[in-house]
């Protein structure tokens, strides 16, 4: 990603593993990317590919997953070197996250209003009236009607989509520099989804907020992102400008993914879907080769033996594939 200025966030060679008695599960394996100020990077990829673990690592919340190697530079400083006390100041203020599971960030025994207030008081100096106003405004912005009533409700009294929106409100409350959004709109119908995405884009324009968005919805990715990274089996296998990625995907997995999108468009008429084959193999079961090799229609002898490097072409289009690099 070419940028003359220093990017807001820069992740280098990040690896996260789960260690059991006699086993290591590599959830994230040598992942590097950066996000310039005001820009949006999207991460797509199969369920279990390591997307959430990558995101959680940025806030040092990957436990019990251990960050084995790598550095995470936020405004030039390595987050992994910071004290826990410093991290608490960053979380929710400079970097905030919309979690995939709302129950990760909403406490069941406090009302929505109490929880939002807590976040505000931790990070900003506002009096009660100002805080209430900020909270009500934010709830309204995420499409929760009658916020003065909703503030007094507990999370379990909200619908699935409202919980998700309350969480989005919480993440945006302190106007973060970096917003991490892990499947932020899965529980929302298209109209409200549109409203939320517009809100994020608007804040982004006003505050030059950077966004990392994880989604399996290519509609969301297409609308929001400047760049997209595709993950497979813990690796980034392709990363490019969003237009490039959609127009000229190079990695066999990305190609398959985009083709399955086209199939999805059609399957409603034809009442036919092609279910995917067996789940992908994790690195440790696949030795040292390309993670996608067992399923790849183009694989060569070398593919199963050696992991291809992530190679950059003249358009800043990165691909991790032995044969895609010489432009198929």
């Amino acid at each position: 990603m070419a940028s003359t200025k220093q990017p807001l966030l820069s992740v280098r060679h990040l690896s996260v593993s789960f260690f059991t008695k006699n086993d290591e599960v590599k959830a994230v394996d040598d992942v590097s990317f950066s996000i310039p100020k005001g820009q949006t990077l999207g991460i797509v990829g199969e369920s279990g590919a390591g997307k959430s673990m990558t995101a959680l690592s940025l806030l040092r919340l990957s436990q019990p997953g251990e960050i084995v190697t790598g550095e995470i530079l936020f405004e030039g400083e390595n987050i992994l070197k910071k004290k826990e006390r410093e991290m608490r100041k960053i979380r929710g203020k400079d970097i905030s996250m919309i979690f995939q599971d709302p129950m990760n960030s909403l406490h069941p025994t406090y009302t929505i209003g109490q929880q939002l207030r807590e976040v505000l008081y931790t990070h900003e100096h506002l009096n009660k009236k100002q805080a209430t106003k900020r909270i009500m405004d934010m709830l309204q912005l995420v499409g929760i009607s009658a916020p003065e009533k909703r503030m007094h409700q507990y999370p379990h009294e909200l619908s699935g989509g409202m919980k998700q929106r309350a969480m989005i409100a919480m993440a945006l409350l302190c106007y973060p520099k970096l917003l991490i959004a892990d499947e932020p709109t899965t529980a929302l119908d298209v109209t409200i989804q549109a409203q939320i995405l517009t809100l994020i884009k608007e804040l982004q324009r006003k505050l030059a907020m950077s966004v990392l968005i994880i989604s399996h919805d290519f509609g969301v990715i297409a609308e929001m992102c400047d760049h997209v990274a595709v993950m497979y089996g813990g690796n980034i296998v392709e990363m490019a400008d969003v237009h490039h990625l959609f127009e000229k995907p190079k990695h066999p997995y990305t190609i398959e993914l985009l083709q399955s999108l086209l199939r999805k468009d059609r399957h409603t008429n034809e009442k036919k879907v092609r279910p995917i084959k067996e789940p992908f193999l994790r690195s440790e079961e696949n030795g040292t080769g390309c993670r996608f090799a067992p399923k790849c229609p183009y694989k060569q002898e070398i593919c199963a033996k050696r992991l291809p490097p992530l190679i950059q072409d003249e358009h800043n289009h990165y691909t991790r594939c032995w044969i895609a690099s010489d432009d198929r």
């Binding site: 199969e46 899965t186 993914l257 399955s260 999805k264 399957h267």
Partner: peptide, 11 residues
């Protein structure tokens, strides 16, 4: 299926 990627959804 809303939290699943498209091929998993299909499956």
């Amino acid at each position: 299926v809303s939290s699943l990627d498209i091929s998993r959804q299909a499956q």
